Structure formats: structure tokens, C-alpha cells
Computed example of a mutant assay.
Amino acid sequence: MLFAPDAEEALEFVVALVNTEADASRSGADELVTVDQLTDLLARYGYSGRIDRDQAELAAVREARGQLRRAWTLGRDDAVEAVNRMLREARALPYLTRHDGSDWHLHATEPDAPLAERIRVEAALALVDVIRTKETGRLRVCGADDCTGVFLDLSRNGSKRFCSVRCGNRMNMIAFRARRAES
């Protein structure tokens, strides 16, 4: 295990959220343009607390998505500034809690805080673990030429290069065809 379970869950949510962007999604379209799409995403990851289900909340989450993509791609030292800013702007006060069948884990905002703020803070807390364990190299952008999807490399040796099997297979096929054309 590289990270605490709640940190891993938060990082996996960031991956799912960021990969709703048009240039990272499977469909090639922005997959976070309606309140219903946001509701579906939140349901898949068990988000609790205040959820307004309105256009303002959707816009705020879309803005958080961009901030989290930028934080994901920063080096370790630069990520510290981004993480500290997210925590400071939310006036985060970490506390242990247990709810909805989850064991003790960290939160740093109240359940009635705006959703986008809670998303940023939970991601920031997870990134604290990543930075402290010197594992920022596990936060990756897909190695496929035509994909900007992000992923969390939890493999034992940290050698994953692609966000999905689909991207890996596509790049392997391109390399195979190039080798074949040379011979």
C-alpha cells in the first residue's frame, strides 16, 4: 500500500474528474457539461455532504477540475505551493471522521461546504500524502501521443505509461506497424 485508503480514493476521484475533459475522455467530448453528469460521477465515488445539483455548482467543479489537472502535473516542490494554496483558501482544518461505512479518515471542511471546495481540499490532503512519501512520480499523464488523460500508477514497480489498456494497445500497434514498415 502506497497511500492511506482515503488518500487513494481521493486521487482516484481526481483521475475520474480530470479525465472528463474533452481531450482526456474516452468519448472525445467533455463529459462534465450537465448537472446530471456531475451527479452520476459523484454517485460512482460515493460523495457525501452538501450537493446542490445546480449550474453554479457544476461551474465551480469544472473550475476545480482545471486546478486539479494543473496540480497533478507539477513537480514535487511546485505541487507544495498549489496544495498549500488550496488548503489555505478553504481555511482547511483537518479532522478525523467515520461515516457511511468508511473507517477513520481525514476531512478538512465541513460537510455543508460547497462541493468544489470539498473536492479541492480532499484532493489536496491526498496530495499531501503523495508529496510526503516522495511519490509524485506516481501521478502521471498518459504516454499516448493523442491522449492527455491522467492516471495514478499504483503498480508495484511504478512503470505504467498509459491511462488505459486502450491507449497502451493503440500505441503498441502504432509501434508494431512502424517496425514492420521499416523491414
Rank of each mutant, 00 (worst) to 15 (best):
E8P: 01
R180I: 01
D145W: 09
L74R: 01
D112G: 12
E57K: 07
M171H: 04
T39M: 05
A116H: 11
S48D: 15
N169R: 08
P114N: 12
G28E: 01
D78V: 04
E122M: 15
D52L: 13
L2I: 13
D103R: 15
L96D: 02
F13A: 06
C142T: 14
L96H: 14
C147T: 05
R98I: 12
H105T: 06
L68E: 03
K134E: 14
W72T: 01
V150I: 13
A24M: 03
V83T: 10
Q37W: 08
G75E: 14
M171Q: 15
R179Q: 13
G75R: 12
V14L: 08
A16W: 01
L106Y: 13
V165F: 00
N19L: 07
G28W: 11
E21V: 04
G66H: 11
E57M: 09
V80L: 15
M86S: 08
Y95M: 10
F3S: 10
V121E: 07
L68H: 06
P5M: 04
K160A: 11
A59M: 05
V130D: 03
D100C: 02
I119F: 11
S164N: 05
A60T: 07
A16H: 02
L139M: 13
W104M: 15
L152I: 02
L139E: 01
I131K: 06
S159A: 12
C147I: 10
C147G: 09
F151W: 04
S155I: 11
M173P: 02
E135V: 00
A181W: 00
V14W: 00
F151R: 08
L115N: 07
E117G: 11
D52F: 06
V33S: 04
V150T: 12
A4T: 06
G143R: 09
L41T: 08
A60D: 15
D103Y: 06
